[in-house]
Each structure stands twice: as structure tokens, then as C-alpha cells.
Amino acid sequence: MNWNRKHLLDIESLSAAEIMKVLETARSFKQVGERAIKKVPALRGKTVINLFIEPSTRTRISFELAAVRLTADVINFSTDSSSLKKGETLKDTARNLEALSADIIIIRHSAAGAPHFLARFLDAHVVNAGDGAHEHPTQALLDTFTILEKKGRIAGLNVTILGDILYSRVARSNIWALTKLGAKVTLCGPATLVPRVFEDMGCRVTHKVDEAIENADIINLLRIQHERQRKTMFPGIGEYTALWGLTKQRLEKTKPDVLIMHPGPINRGVEIDSQIADGARSVVLDQVTNGLAVRMAVLFLINGGVDAQGAAPSVPDPRLGKN
């Protein structure tokens, strides 16, 4: 299939075929990262702007490195040193960046829908690097890529997402991606953070952790997001670890080939035992490596994509094909 999207705003609007297209393309880009010369000229002359209105290190560095490996020029924009502090609106900031001929704007924002808002008036390509508690599409793509790489398939697998679901954009994007690709998703955590309403997204919801992880092929642990939570969501960190944390005792009752995933940053000793995080079943660092390949694939694909609102692809010149 051909990729036709100009932006990557969310997973919800992607088809299973489009998700697979990104994952297949990422396989080739992962090879690039394994070579002595880890760079290809696919985005030569393009300007990529990392517009991170909310703090982030790993996602920003991953996107920055992805763009650099595609030979784009990258500018990092952080809130602390910007005019947003002086009261400039997001729209004005984005328009100014576009006036500097940015080709791709990667945005992280604390407000859900901020990337969709930018996509409505910008000519540049927009990539969502996390918008509030809404979606974090590249995280879901790199998670599914890692599962596919390790397990060889997605359909039919039991994936348990454990932790703070309510405030998690990672959870939402993963739920969309996994259910579209045919995995069976179970959500677990404190009832205050895992409400039953998620059953509407096609997931099983349980508040019993042993039951949730018993048959899991993958356990994806989510961080307790201290910055997004009110103090009343659960009584305390110690109780959270006792009731919901992935401890050695709990791990013994899981399938022997279960994969442990975590989008990071890890709160060691809170949602996951430190030794498990570094253990043989943990694919946490594979996720980071794969994130780079997936983000290269996303930037490459959207750079060539035009959507319904964009200009039609120029009339194909027969010489542009392979023959």
C-alpha cells in the first residue's frame, strides 16, 4: 500500500495496514543504524523543528537523532528560552517557525489536540510527540515494532498494560495500535487510574494484578505520572508497589517467555523491581533503539505524504519510476 498521510497526529485514525507500513519501513531504517555509516540522505535540505512545550529528554533526543540520521537540519525549541514565556500563543509560535521555512514540526504539548490544531493551519508536516493524556503515537509504534520483532506477530497475543492508564497517552496509543493489529489487551491498576470506561476501547479491565499478568505474553508497565496526578489517586508509593508493582514474586507466576516493556523513565522500585528492569525478559533498551528506527520511518513517510487537504501528488513522470 502507499502512504498518503501528511501528518502523524494519532494512532486512532490509522488503519492496521498503515501501522504495518510504518513498522515495515522501520525495519529498513533499523538496518541503517547498524551500519558503520548511520546516515542516509532522504531528508537532505529539510528543516525539522522539535517544538517541545513540555519537558522531555528521550523522545526529543530520539526525534533529533532520527532527523539527523536522515540528513535533515534540526532545531530544538524549548519552552524555557522561548517567547511562549512572554505570552506568545502557540499558533503564533508555530507560524513564526514556519515562516523560517520549517518543513516538519514535531510537537509535544500538555494540551490534548495541540498537534491537530497546528495541522489545521500549517503547511508544514506535523508529528505528534505526545499531547497531554491523549496520544503518543510514535511510542505505540515503537512498542508494537518491538513486540513484532521479539514475538514475530501481534495478532492473538495477550498484552497487559499495568499502571496509570487514565493519565497515560502511551496507554491510549498502545490500545489503539494493539487492538487494530489483533492483540488482546488487558488493563490493570488501581481503580482510580483504570476506570471501566476503557472497556469501550475493546480492552479487558481488571483490578487484580495476578490475574492480569498470569497469561500475558507482554507486560507493558507505565510510570506513575506524579506530574499529572492529584494526590488522591492512591494512598502512597509503598502501597502502590505492594499492590500493583511488578515484583520478583509476581514475575514467577507469569509465562516464562513474557516480555517486560516500559516506556521510561522508570521509577525503580515503584512500578517495577530494579532487577526485573535489567533482567533477561526486559526489552526496555530495545524499545529505545527501535524508537529511533520507527521515528526515522515516520519522518521519511510523512515527508513524502500528502493528505486530502494537501496538494495532490504531482503528475507522475514515467521516468520517476524504476523504469
Binding site: 498518503n4 519501513t25 540522505p41 532522504a42 521519511f300 515527508n303 513524502g304 501528488p313 520517476l320 519510476g321
Partner: peptide, 21 residues
């Protein structure tokens, strides 16, 4: 040998398929 990422016409056509090498 996949040459897609090195093509000079990436901006003028629909995104081509990238093949593993």
C-alpha cells in the same frame, strides 16, 4: 541493495517502498 533513501526524486513522487538490504 535498496536505493530508496538515496533517490533524488523523493519529493516528486508518492513515498516509495523502502526494502531491507
Amino acid at each position: 541493495l535498496d536505493v530508496t533513501m538515496h533517490r533524488d526524486d523523493l519529493d516528486q513522487r508518492a513515498t516509495p517502498d523502502v526494502h531491507p538490504m
